[in-house]
Amino acid sequence: MKAAGITAVQPGIESLSSPILRIMRKGIKAIHNIQFLKHCRQLSIIPHWNIIWGFPGEAAEEYREMAVILPHLRHLHPPSGCGPIRLDRFSPNFVQAEELGFQNVRPNQNYERIYNLDVTELSRLSLGCPSMSAAEGEVDIIVRGRHQ
């Protein structure tokens, strides 16, 4: 990549937890993501990656463990952002939302503010839906650093 002149990549890293990566169906383990970040640092390539949460079945404890691991990786590029999963229309998580356990899938609230339409019409218009899962509230507190 470096020889081809690539200076930045978006590798699709969205977690540093193997159990959560399994829930995400990424087909990779946390160590592989960390190894990729290490290679990027060695090659002076900037990886743009994120930590996302809100997957049904994820354990809040996995985020506590990531919070312990991250300070040990400060020599690597940090995540570009952290936030809850967004179900984009036509994505596998959107299409299979019910069978994957996503609850309360609805259009982004900004659509309600812009358009005077009912939820059915907004669902046909919107491209992305935030999703709520049972662990999201607790995970949000852990990821944003407000845990005790």
Rank of each mutant, 00 (worst) to 15 (best):
K2S: 15
K2Q: 14
A3N: 14
A3H: 11
G5T: 06
G5N: 08
T7R: 15
T7V: 10
T7N: 14
P11M: 08
G12R: 01
G12I: 06
E14H: 01
E14K: 06
E14L: 00
S15D: 05
S15Q: 03
P19C: 06
I20T: 14
L21T: 02
L21A: 03
R22G: 06
R22Y: 09
I23Q: 12
R25W: 03
K29C: 08
L37D: 11
L37Y: 08
K38C: 08
K38S: 15
K38P: 02
H39S: 12
C40P: 08
R41F: 05
Q42L: 15
I45F: 04
P47F: 07
H48L: 10
H48C: 01
W49M: 00
N50M: 09
I51N: 00
I52E: 05
F55P: 00
F55Q: 08
F55D: 03
P56V: 07
E61M: 02
Y63W: 04
R64S: 08
R64V: 07
M66P: 02
M66G: 05
M66S: 05
A67D: 10
V68Q: 12
I69G: 00
I69W: 14
L70T: 04
L70S: 02
P71Y: 06
H72A: 12
L73K: 04
R74V: 04
P78M: 00
P79M: 00
G81H: 02
G83Q: 03
I85N: 01
L87F: 13
L87V: 04
L87T: 04
D88Y: 15
R89Q: 13
F90L: 11
V95I: 15
Q96S: 09
E99M: 13
F102I: 06
F102A: 04
Q103W: 03
N104W: 10
N104D: 14
V105M: 05
P107F: 08
N108K: 12
N108F: 14
N110S: 13
R113H: 11
I114T: 11
Y115D: 03
D118F: 01
V119Q: 12
T120S: 15
T120H: 11
S123I: 01
R124G: 15
R124Y: 07
R124P: 01
R124M: 08
L125R: 14
G128V: 11
S131G: 11
S133R: 00
A134Y: 11
G137Q: 10
E138R: 09
V139I: 15
I141C: 07
I142V: 10
V143F: 07
R144Y: 13
R146D: 13
R146K: 12
H147T: 11
H147N: 13
Q148F: 13
